[in-house]
């Protein structure tokens, strides 16, 4: 028995000619959060569907909560909670009725199902809406209800497939807060996301997948460290080409101008920072800001996936809900 709550070994799955998963292995220790990070079509949902007993594999092995996903699917189902990418709550039922039914399907019995439903509605701030039909819920409320539904039987392991995609920024923050609360209670979470900041915010470990392959994994810090050194960035108050040029020449060959600022690799970390500050003082140059910057996960992502267009990955697309 390993102590990992989720362990997957060399999962592969194709749909006809589409190789959704080519070779994905991952280990998620108990009570930790793992983010499966990848673009649209990278294979995230496929991986989640396999680990939650919804999809078979072409090859590979997987264990969740100590049981084999394929030969002991019922044991796994009794121990997991799943919130898929698409809404699963019945629009024609109220929030409370939806939760109650999921509780009964988890074999909690009528009384416990009702009690858990009420507890979760309170916890997810849905008490006022509990007797309203779900079709009148906003997008954020639906997601919270869906999350509540997957918690009804207090699962050991929780799977969240893109829990914040399509949410407005406020709902997104609320969702993050809800997920963080869960983690403090000891639940193991595997979440998928297209957003680097989300992985950075929530995850203990990140597994980056692209075209069905794991292209990088580690803690957010490890991933950043593996990519590059920090930079010192000097930002000037106004766009003044000659001032920028003077700063660049003082900071040496490796300095580069980006917009209002000049950045130079901080090969000695904080020591480089104080050297830069000293030189700026010597020049008597008025500056807006000087600081040490670590590489962002954005840069990590575009380097490990070999695509240079990391741009689409950072800003969460917000849609109008309901």
């Amino acid at each position: 028995m390993s102590s990992a709550a989720i362990s997957a070994e060399r999962l592969a799955r194709s749909f006809g000619e589409t190789h959704a998963l080519v070779d994905v292995s991952l280990e998620v220790p108990s009570s930790s959060v793992c983010a499966l990070l990848g673009r649209n079509g990278a294979g995230k949902t496929t991986a989640v569907r396999i680990l939650t007993t919804l999809l078979s594999v072409d090859s590979g092995r997987a264990q969740v909560a100590g049981f084999d996903v394929f030969s002991q699917a019922d044991k796994v189902r009794a121990r997991i909670g799943v919130t898929g990418q698409t809404a699963t709550m019945d629009e024609l039922l109220t929030g409370r009725e939806n939760l109650d039914i999921i509780g009964r399907f988890c074999h909690l019995g009528a009384a416990t199902s009702r009690r858990r439903a009420d507890d979760l509605l309170r916890e997810f701030d849905l008490v006022d809406a509990r007797d309203r039909l779900v079709k009148k819920y906003s997008g954020g409320m639906r997601r919270r209800l869906d999350l509540a539904a997957s918690l009804i039987a207090e699962p050991e392991v929780l799977f969240l497939d893109e829990p914040t995609t399509g949410l407005d920024p406020i709902s997104r923050r609320e969702m993050w807060a809800a997920i963080r609360t869960l983690v403090t209670r000891g639940t193991t979470v595997l979440l998928t996301t297209q957003y680097l900041d989300e992985a950075d915010q929530l995850a203990d470990t990140i597994v980056v997948i692209d075209q069905g392959l794991v292209v990088a994994q580690g803690t957010p810090e490890q991933l950043k460290a593996s990519i590059g050194r920090p930079h010192v960035r000097v930002t000037l108050p106004d766009l003044d080409a000659s001032a920028l040029e003077r700063v660049r020449s003082v900071l040496g060959d490796q300095a580069e101008i980006h917009g209002l600022s000049v950045s130079v690799p901080a090969s000695n970390g904080l020591a480089t920072l104080s050297e830069v500050v000293a030189q700026l003082e010597l020049m008597g140059m008025p500056v807006y800001e000087v600081g040490l910057e670590h590489p962002s996960l954005d840069e990590v992502f575009s380097i490990v996936t070999g695509h240079s267009d990391g741009a689409g990955m950072t800003a969460p697309a917000t849609e109008k809900n309901g």
């Binding site: 019922d74 189902r77 399907f105 539904a149």
Partner: peptide, 17 residues
């Protein structure tokens, strides 16, 4: 065609239900 069946299938429900 909706997500609800996926949810039911991850619950320990009898297949026939």
């Amino acid at each position: 065609s909706e997500g609800v069946i996926d949810r039911f299938k991850t619950l320990p429900i009898a297949r026939s239900a």
